[in-house]
Simulated scan of single mutants.
Amino acid sequence: MDLDAVRTFVIVADAGRFQDAAVELSITQQGVSKRIAALEKRLGARLFTRTARGAKLTIDGQAFLPHARELLRAEERAINSVRPGRRALRVDVIGRRLAPASLLRDFHRAHPGIELDVVTLFDADAAIDAVRSGTIDATFRAVTTPGGHLPDDIGVARVFDEPVQLLTGPAHELAGVRAVTPTGLVGHRIWMPGIVPGTEWAAYYEALATAFALTIEITGPDFGTEPLLDTIADSRSLATLVGERTRLVWPADQGLRRIAVKDPTPVYPHSLLWHRDNPHPTLAALRHHLFSGRLEHSDAALWTPAWA
């Protein structure tokens, strides 16, 4: 549908005269008439009746008017979704259950008037390319490049060190303890089928396993979070590792346990990446919120991979 014709129809309906609509649109009265005629042909209905006082909506015109206004509102929303400075701040959080999504929710609660467009990109390289091209404004990632080297136009700052916890079922040997050391996990089977080789989280858990001689198994199909929790809940030997702020919900009868890992505490290093020339006005507010609210862990003994 020709939105210029729809806009012309709405202006004529509001003004009540074709001539007044022509003045507002900076076109001729004949141009207004042609647009309305084309729209009526498209709809197969007459929209106006000409009177001595101007243009009066027909019954069909009255029925179409609220829908015409909504079409124009939808057009404006579509334009604003990609217009720099007016569209929502577009941020990649990797996964909607993970800590970056939680950090972004905290930001939104602190700034409820700010519009956010939350996306999830799987691949870190694709996310960085999207930041450089302006497709997204920022991404939360663990930076695994040697020494944290990134393209010069990419800004990066570590914003959250998330403690890693052990998750077990009620029958597991460690289910009754309040905390365990990384070396205390040696010999226990840690099952993480969601790890995909080559990803940043795969690099993190590979480094963790190497540092403490842990057995982290990634074999078997990944059917998602719920089947993983079902398996852990029923197992006496399998456990898994999750981030402290990973959102998990399970039935009460599963009896799953979250167990702190300490001395040292493995933390997952979440960083925010953005383009240094990004002009979006909300990006600075997000960065300030994350940097000013960065928490220092009371446990002085922390572990991160050497690349972090």
Rank of each mutant, 00 (worst) to 15 (best):
residue 2 D to V: 01
residue 7 R to A: 11
residue 8 T to W: 05
residue 13 A to R: 08
residue 14 D to Y: 13
residue 16 G to L: 00
residue 16 G to M: 08
residue 18 F to N: 01
residue 18 F to W: 11
residue 19 Q to R: 15
residue 19 Q to V: 15
residue 22 A to W: 02
residue 24 E to S: 15
residue 25 L to W: 14
residue 26 S to K: 14
residue 27 I to Y: 13
residue 28 T to L: 13
residue 34 K to M: 12
residue 35 R to A: 10
residue 39 L to M: 12
residue 44 G to K: 06
residue 47 L to K: 08
residue 54 G to A: 00
residue 54 G to H: 12
residue 54 G to V: 03
residue 55 A to M: 10
residue 57 L to C: 07
residue 59 I to Q: 11
residue 62 Q to A: 14
residue 63 A to C: 10
residue 64 F to Q: 01
residue 66 P to E: 09
residue 69 R to W: 02
residue 74 A to F: 15
residue 78 A to R: 14
residue 78 A to L: 11
residue 78 A to Y: 13
residue 79 I to N: 14
residue 85 G to A: 08
residue 87 R to F: 12
residue 91 V to K: 06
residue 94 I to H: 02
residue 96 R to K: 14
residue 97 R to V: 04
residue 97 R to W: 02
residue 100 P to N: 09
residue 103 L to Q: 07
residue 103 L to R: 04
residue 104 L to P: 01
residue 104 L to A: 02
residue 104 L to W: 03
residue 107 F to L: 07
residue 108 H to R: 10
residue 109 R to T: 05
residue 110 A to I: 06
residue 113 G to C: 10
residue 116 L to H: 06
residue 118 V to N: 07
residue 119 V to Q: 04
residue 119 V to H: 10
residue 122 F to Y: 09
residue 123 D to S: 03
residue 124 A to R: 03
residue 126 A to I: 08
residue 128 I to C: 00
residue 128 I to N: 04
residue 128 I to F: 00
residue 134 G to V: 01
residue 135 T to C: 11
residue 136 I to T: 08
residue 137 D to G: 09
residue 138 A to G: 09
residue 139 T to D: 06
residue 140 F to Q: 09
residue 144 T to G: 04
residue 147 G to H: 01
residue 148 G to D: 00
residue 150 L to A: 11
residue 159 V to G: 07
residue 166 L to G: 10
residue 174 L to K: 12
residue 175 A to T: 04
residue 178 R to S: 13
residue 178 R to D: 03
residue 179 A to D: 05
residue 180 V to R: 05
residue 183 T to Q: 15
residue 183 T to Y: 14
residue 189 R to M: 05
residue 189 R to G: 03
residue 193 P to V: 00
residue 193 P to N: 11
residue 194 G to W: 07
residue 202 A to N: 02
residue 203 A to I: 02
residue 204 Y to A: 03
residue 204 Y to L: 00
residue 208 L to E: 04
residue 210 T to A: 15
residue 210 T to L: 13
residue 211 A to Y: 04
residue 216 I to R: 03
residue 218 I to E: 05
residue 220 G to H: 10
residue 222 D to N: 15
residue 226 E to N: 10
residue 228 L to T: 04
residue 229 L to F: 09
residue 246 T to R: 06
residue 250 W to D: 07
residue 251 P to D: 00
residue 251 P to R: 01
residue 253 D to L: 09
residue 258 R to D: 11
residue 260 A to D: 12
residue 261 V to S: 09
residue 263 D to E: 15
residue 264 P to M: 03
residue 264 P to T: 06
residue 264 P to Y: 14
residue 265 T to Y: 15
residue 270 H to F: 10
residue 270 H to I: 02
residue 281 P to E: 05
residue 282 T to L: 11
residue 283 L to D: 03
residue 283 L to S: 11
residue 284 A to Y: 01
residue 287 R to E: 06
residue 289 H to M: 04
residue 290 L to A: 06
residue 298 S to N: 13
residue 299 D to L: 13
